[in-house]
């Protein structure tokens, strides 16, 4: 028997902040967040592909997604299924609300303990926060090594895993033992497309909340819902200290939020005079465009 691995991919559902084009703006110049579609965080897709490549090489390997978010984040687990994953867990609980990266990492680490993988792979960062903190923080909470900015991963039977890292000004190749947490860069290969067979098989995969909530699901008992039920875990399922979750587990607080107000789009003509340039720069500084 060849070696098999248990892999958990951390993935987040995010608003598509990259497409805050000129039309996702409200009249007052602020972003209309509701107008942004919820998507699978791009670098988490790269992470999923790395996990699936390990599975290609070591058949029998199990790839599961773990996502924390509201009920609709079950989309992430379904998307994982469509692309070849074996399942996933939705971590959802009101008690997680208001979590900063530290409290998020705590919740994820508690769920990971329960899933007990050899390898944890996540995207380098999520586009709604760009912090790149959750991966390293989860690794610390689990007391395992982290390898960030991976571009390719080669697992081996010998108990060693080799990772090529993309750094600001070059590459580094490292090897380590299991368990390990790896974060993947956008420069890694894109994720494979959805697989038609997987799509047919898992399109009705849903959480119990979704099954109970949806009146139109009356035909669902026709399917083998046991295979198709996405587990939902809350604080009660993963355990841990309640104070470390959500708002109370978050050392950082948001004191103030300023919406960036974009100026009207017709172009303004300015002269080269000192006064014109001065007033432009004062405006740019006060809108935090520069500074």
């Amino acid at each position: 028997m060849t070696k098999t691995f248990k892999i958990v991919v951390l993935a987040k559902q995010v608003p598509d902040t990259r497409n805050v084009g000129k039309n996702a703006m409200k009249e007052d110049g602020t972003v209309n967040r509701a107008a942004l579609p919820a998507i699978f965080n791009p670098e988490d897709m790269n992470a999923l592909e790395q996990a699936l490549r390990i599975k290609d090489k070591f058949p029998g390997t199990k790839v599961e997604l773990l996502t924390m978010g509201p009920l609709r984040a079950a989309d992430i687990i379904r998307e994982g299924y469509f692309r070849g994953a074996d399942g996933g867990v939705l971590l959802t609980d009101r008690k997680f609300a208001g979590a900063d990266t530290l409290a998020t990492s705590y919740a994820l680490s508690m769920a990971i303990r329960k899933m007990n993988p050899d390898i944890i792979i996540s995207g380098r960062q999520a586009i709604d926060g760009d912090t790149a903190q959750v991966g390293p923080q989860v690794a610390e909470k689990l007391g395992i090594p982290q390898v960030t900015y991976a571009e390719s991963i080669s697992a081996s039977e010998s108990g060693k895993i080799t990772i090529l890292r993309r750094l600001e000004r070059g590459i580094e190749e490292v090897s380590t033992s299991y368990p390990v947490l790896i974060t993947v860069n956008a420069t890694a290969p894109a994720c494979r497309p959805r697989n038609a067979k997987q799509l047919m098989r898992y399109k009705h995969a849903s959480t119990l909340s979704e099954q109970n909530d949806n009146e139109h699901n009356s035909y669902l008992p026709l399917f083998n819902m046991e295979e198709l039920t996405i587990p939902e875990w809350g604080v009660a399922d993963v355990g841990g200290e309640e104070i470390k979750y959500g708002l109370s587990g978050s050392p950082t607080k948001v004191k103030k939020i300023e919406n960036i107000v974009f100026q009207a789009k017709e172009s303004k003509r300015l002269s080269a005079s000192e006064e014109d340039i001065d007033s432009l720069f004062i405006e740019l500084i006060s809108s935090h465009t520069i500074g």
Binding site: T17, R18, I127, D128, D130, K253, I257, N259, I260
Partner: peptide, 20 residues
């Protein structure tokens, strides 16, 4: 006061850590 852009640069947030 830790001031940073967030949400793809569409907002500016001021973050504090009062207790830690």
């Amino acid at each position: 006061y830790q001031i940073r852009p967030a949400f793809g640069g569409n907002i500016i947030a001021t973050i504090i850590n009062p207790e830690h």
